[in-house]
Computed example of a mutant assay.
Amino acid sequence: MKRSLFALGFVAFSGLAWAQLTPEGLWRNIDDKTGEAKAEIRIAATPSGALHGRIERALIQSAEPNCTACTDDRKGQPKVGLEIIRGAKKSPDDLVWEGGKILDPENGKEYTLRMTPIEDGKKLQVRGYIGPFYRTQVWVRVQ
């Protein structure tokens, strides 16, 4: 009986630990230049398994509430509710999500995306690339 309870507890704990090693959830993005929390972004899976993310809440008021710098279907849309992550997929090593795009709604630029959960899933390293140049932010999971 003790063994089965231990095994059940281990399986339940393992599931909780694994669940945190995914970008899915609510994140507070921290500006890499100022160190300030700017917004909360909800990352979720699409039916195909790719991840997308939307700005759920602004923590700092922007001078421009709409994405006027965007050049695609998001042009002129409100930043709150804006889809900024599209198409990220889990890599074969199961530790990184990549292949998607991330939008910076302040300048309208879209970057190739790479997301890596760190610190047991409590933080998310978000890196956007254009060619050899990149910018990295570390987002914090909202509990």
Rank of each mutant, 00 (worst) to 15 (best):
I55Q: 12
L124R: 03
C67F: 10
T46M: 09
P105I: 10
W139G: 01
L16R: 06
S4M: 01
D72F: 03
V138F: 12
R74C: 07
K101Y: 07
L16T: 08
I118W: 00
I41E: 06
R54P: 00
R141Y: 09
K101P: 00
A69V: 01
L82R: 11
E36T: 07
A88W: 07
E24T: 15
V140C: 01
G100V: 11
R127A: 10
T34L: 06
T112I: 09
T71K: 14
W139I: 07
V138E: 10
G76R: 05
K123Q: 13
W97F: 03
K109S: 10
E40F: 08
S91A: 15
P92C: 04
G87N: 12
P117H: 01
P78D: 11
A37Y: 06
D104K: 07
A58N: 15
L26G: 03
R86L: 12
R127T: 15
K90R: 14
V126C: 06
D73R: 10
R28K: 13
K33C: 04
G131E: 00
I60G: 05
I43T: 07
R74M: 10
V138H: 08
D104P: 04
T22D: 02
A19H: 04
T136S: 14
W97I: 04
T116M: 08
G81R: 11
E36M: 12
L5H: 07
M115S: 05
F10K: 03
E119F: 09
V140N: 03
G81S: 11
A88R: 07
A39T: 15
G15D: 00
F13D: 00
K33F: 05
I41Y: 03
G100N: 07
I102Y: 02
T71L: 07
K33V: 12
D32N: 15
V140D: 09
V11L: 15
L82F: 12
F6Q: 09
D94T: 03
G87K: 11
E106L: 10
P117Y: 01
R42Q: 12
S91K: 03
W139D: 03
G25C: 01
K79I: 15
D93T: 02
L95A: 13
E64R: 07
V138P: 10
E56F: 12
E98S: 15
D32I: 09
F13W: 09
I43D: 05
V140F: 09
P92E: 09
K90G: 03
F133K: 11
E40N: 14
L103Q: 08
R86E: 12
R141K: 13
A88N: 05
Y134A: 15
I85M: 11
R86T: 15
F13H: 04
W27F: 10
D94H: 10
R3C: 00
L59F: 12
I84N: 09
Q77N: 07
Q143F: 12
V138N: 08
G35N: 11
N29H: 12
F13R: 04
D73M: 02
E56L: 12
R135H: 13
G100P: 08
M115R: 08
T46A: 12
T22K: 03
I41D: 06
F10A: 15
P23I: 06
G15T: 03
Q125T: 13
I85H: 09
S48E: 14
I85C: 02
T112S: 14
N107T: 00
K2C: 00
G49Q: 00
G49W: 02
Q137E: 14
M115Q: 08
L51P: 04
W139A: 00
I43Y: 06
G9Y: 01
S14I: 02
W18E: 04
G87C: 11
T68D: 15
L8P: 00
